[in-house]
Amino acid sequence: MDAKHTLLAERLLKKPASDFSDSDRRVLRHMLDRAPVSQDPALRADTLGARVADKVASFGGSWTFIMLFGGVLVTWVVLNGVLLASPPDPFPFIFLNLMLSMIAAFQAPIIMMSQSRQAQKDREAAANDYEVNLKSELEIMRLHEKLDDLRLVALEDQLRLITNKIDAIAAAVNRP
């Protein structure tokens, strides 16, 4: 960043260049390059494990899963508690409890991984939103400065014209 742009950035951000954060520098670089700051989150490359964790969490937290799992539980209890003469898992359904515990033991950390990834995505999206908003604000401030400069030039031109007319009138009045 050259000295002219550094001065502009310091004036707009109201802090010395040495205090600029990485985010500030990135936004300023995008301003100088006239490039967009926003990023498409769909372009992010996720690992296979991350995608599986998201799918498991998505399905495990859905009404479809709750209804299917409820149906399996009811079927298990009815079969082993009422219909079968010699049930493989009689009441109190110890094998069913073991299976439920194992499912919970695997499902909980996978859901936590997915939630952690989602929180990271949210933090990145918030940081990106901040940078986009900062760039927009700085661009608007820069436009206001340009408009103010244009108004000042226009006022100076008008003042020069008025001064010339006053001088012409004074010269005409002072002529004998």
Rank of each mutant, 00 (worst) to 15 (best):
M1D: 12
T6C: 12
E10S: 03
L13I: 03
P16S: 09
P16T: 08
D22T: 07
D24Q: 05
L28F: 05
P36Y: 00
D40T: 05
R44D: 15
A45P: 00
T47N: 02
A50G: 08
D54P: 00
A57I: 00
S58W: 11
T64C: 08
M67F: 14
V77R: 04
V77M: 13
V78R: 06
L79T: 09
V82I: 12
S86M: 09
P87F: 03
P92D: 11
P92G: 12
F93I: 03
L96Y: 09
N97K: 14
L98S: 06
L98V: 13
L98F: 11
M102W: 11
Q107V: 00
P109D: 02
I110L: 15
M112P: 01
M113F: 08
S114H: 00
S116M: 12
S116D: 08
S136G: 13
E137M: 12
L143E: 10
K146T: 09
D148N: 11
D149M: 09
D149H: 07
R151W: 02
V153I: 14
R160I: 04
T163A: 12
I169G: 00
I169H: 04
A170Q: 13
A171I: 02
A171Y: 03
A171C: 01
A172L: 10
A172N: 13
V173F: 11
N174Q: 10
